[in-house]
Design a protein around this nucleic acid. Structure first.
Lengths: 209, 209
DNA sequence: GGTAAAGTGTAACATTTGTTACGAGGGCTT
DNA sequence: AAGCCCTCGTAACAAATGTTACACTTTACC
């Protein structure tokens, strides 16, 4: 139960309230790295709470092209947008990147819980909204920007790039393409290559005036 | 008030319930085609209900490249995902494509209304979820598919293409590129050109066995 | 009916990104 | 130290899409 209190969704809840929620059907499941949590197309029938570990969501293409959409660390709500949808099939594949723990809580019980505890409802709406904003930004990134801008955005968000292959995968581009763009950005003075304390090479955005 | 009853969000509501909601601050605004409803970056403080007309949402890029993301017909909830978000600025520009009517309803009043009427809450959650799914599909489209597939998807959704320029804009590609792909699809027998009853030319997907 | 405007198909060329291949360097094991 | 594996940079080429330009048709309007 202490695990649940780490969630923003519940951090306004008293112990009594959580006890009340846990009266209803639920379960706690442990996973190891690599486990497949949900297959694309699976219907979402429970609230899924990632209490420990890191997951990776992927959207597969028919042509074999695959794009890593996102990595999420605990604590986080998985697939909140499909729990109450009319079509509640989850369109992405979710797998564990590390060992981890997921709680499953009955949908209707959670729904009733929300109606009785407005602060939880509000937090859930915020969670849902954050997902929408994230996707919205994603669309904007793909639709409106060239690769150079996408790379710069990514560096600014993550401070540095220490793993080109992985970053290329996250951005949905081929590794040599990313290498090339990084070289260009370096030539233009927008990005520099530095050595981290642990003597690892990294790319970092040059501080602009 | 009859306008509000056309919304799926309220179609389970009695007249009394709607009366109750309309006790709280709200207003009804009329617009003409071309009016700008919300500028990108505007915070969202009220529930916005498009009761009449059609809107167009755009995401602008710094480089001048613009992509039409979506058109929405009444009745529909505008920007539901930003009403209760922590960062509630709307990231898109919304403008009227036709004359129309928008209702604005106080956020907190609506929130309280939802907590007291679970069927409205459920409908609102479904609306939010549908938006997420839409965006999710959009991301998948951009990330995972080539232009040919995007065009085929678009034709299947819309049955026909009667306006190449507009379609190109909606898909976020240059018009000649779309023309070229349409010609290829035609050569491959996946798309055919037909004459509509009103003697307008159109592209249509060939029925596959 | 004539004229301007808008939409369209098409071609040539530029730009961006993907693909494939190869060699250099670093860390790890033996 | 040798061998291996992984990541990376780089180059040459291929594929996809954008850009520009022009001629043709249809539409709208006077």
């Amino acid at each position: 139960m202490e695990e649940l209190k780490t969630f923003p969704l519940f951090n306004t809840c008293t112990d009594e309230e959580l006890q009340e929620l846990l009266q209803s059907p639920h379960r706690r499941e442990e996973y190891v790295a690599g486990d497949l949590l949900v297959n694309a197309g699976t219907p979402c029938r429970s609230l899924m709470l990632l209490a420990q570990g890191t997951v990776e969501t992927r959207m597969g293409g028919a042509n074999g092209r695959e794009v890593v959409i996102e990595q999420m660390r605990s604590p986080t709500v998985l697939a909140p947008a499909f729990l109450f949808a009319e079509d509640n099939t989850i369109p992405v594949e979710v797998s564990m990147r590390t060992d981890g723990v997921v709680w499953y809580i009955n949908r209707e019980a959670f729904f009733n819980f929300m109606t009785q505890h407005p602060h939880v409802l509000r937090a859930f709406l915020q969670t849902l909204s954050a997902r929408s904003r994230f996707l919205s930004g994603k669309v904007k990134g793909f639709a409106v920007k060239g690769l150079r801008d996408r790379v710069l955005d990514h560096i600014r968000k993550h401070d540095t790039i220490t793993n080109v292959s992985e970053t290329a995968e996250q951005l949905g581009v081929a590794r040599p393409s990313l290498s090339r763009v990084l070289a260009e950005l370096q030539a233009d003075g927008l990005v520099e290559r530095i050595n981290l304390s642990n003597n690892v090479k990294a790319y970092r955005a040059v501080i602009q005036k």
